[in-house]
């Protein structure tokens, strides 16, 4: 199985742990991710606030530079996934968007017909294409005893993704049940992490982060699993600030789901970059899973 891979800017920098663990997991599970050559930033939410056509055109360049044999494009970042998928859909549903975007692309010698590339999220790939049986076969370190809170955030599940429920997604829950973890069923798993509000209105953003952390704590989660760099950054890097803002003492490790998946597949902490998070996940994983032979610690 071979897919085109769109890592996105965050995975090149602050969220390299996600990128590294994705690639490591891919190797073990036997699928190939071929990085899209010379991809550009998807613009996150920021271009849409300025000029919609520039936003869609910048995104569409990535779809247009896919080779004809690159029919499925995998994006691990929520914002990238949504932007790529949404642009494809806007171009399919609105002929005017389609012709204007192509007019802009033509200035760069490119063209894109909607539907040419199927944009998929990494979770969908692992859940659907790899599937339960193959995953179970590859488990080296069952996650028994570890209470994980899958956190989906917003843009992977809404407004549409075609593979999970928009209100109460379950695919990551199921995935980690297969891996033997105790999956925490907490009500805010698809609520907002605050997005870029951390940079605009800290009061508003910290409140959103607090709600998520509080709920995970209330449900006695050992750690939260993310699938979006923004979510991870907000919940992890801002956790101390949120703690002091609300006079709480959060100590909730936040890692990418692929990192823990890697652990279950027998990869050591260093390989999946456990230790890059601010609130360390290593100790709780070690404590709950016992002395796993392959774990060298971070």
């Amino acid at each position: 199985m071979k897919y085109a891979y769109y890592p996105g800017c965050s995975l090149e920098a602050g969220s390299a742990a996600y990128d590294v663990s994705v690639r490591a997991v891919a190797k073990v599970l036997g699928f190939e991710l071929e990085e899209l050559d010379d991809w550009n930033c998807c613009g996150a939410t920021e271009y849409f606030s300025q000029d919609e056509l520039v936003a869609t055109s910048v995104i569409a360049r990535n779809l247009a530079i896919c080779r004809p044999d690159q029919k499925e494009l995998i994006a691990p970042c929520a914002a990238c996934f949504l932007n790529l998928k949404k642009t494809d859909q806007l171009m399919a549903e609105h002929s005017e968007v389609r012709s204007k975007v192509n007019e802009a692309l033509a200035a760069g010698g490119l063209h894109y017909d909607p539907g040419q590339v199927r944009v998929r999220h990494l979770l969908d790939l692992i859940y659907t294409d790899i599937g339960e049986a193959a995953l179970r076969e590859k488990i080296k370190q069952p996650l028994t005893g570890l209470r994980v809170a899958p956190y989906y955030g917003c843009q992977v599940v809404r407004p549409m993704n075609g593979f999970d429920n928009t209100e109460y997604p379950m695919k990551m829950d199921e995935l980690f049940t297969w891996l033997g973890a105790e999956v925490v069923d907490y009500p805010v798993k698809a609520h907002c992490c605050g997005g870029h509000m951390t940079q605009i209105s800290e009061g508003a953003a910290y409140e959103l982060i607090r709600r998520l952390l509080d709920s995970a704590v209330e449900h006695e989660a050992d750690l939260i699993l993310c699938m979006c760099p923004m979510c991870q950054l907000n919940l992890d890097a801002y956790q101390a600030l949120v703690s002091s803002y609300f006079q709480k003492n959060f100590q909730m490790p936040i890692i990418f789901f692929t990192q823990l998946l890697g652990v279950a597949l027998g990869l050591d902490f260093e390989t999946v970059k456990i230790g890059k998070e601010i609130v360390s996940a290593g100790p709780v994983i070690k404590a709950k899973l016992g002395a796993a032979p392959s774990q060298t610690g971070a």
């Binding site: 009500p187 805010v188 709920s215 209330e218």
Partner: peptide, 13 residues
Amino acid sequence: VRGKVSEVTDATR
């Protein structure tokens, strides 16, 4: 209350 309910939850605030 005039309003379509947005969500029913047990997530306390």
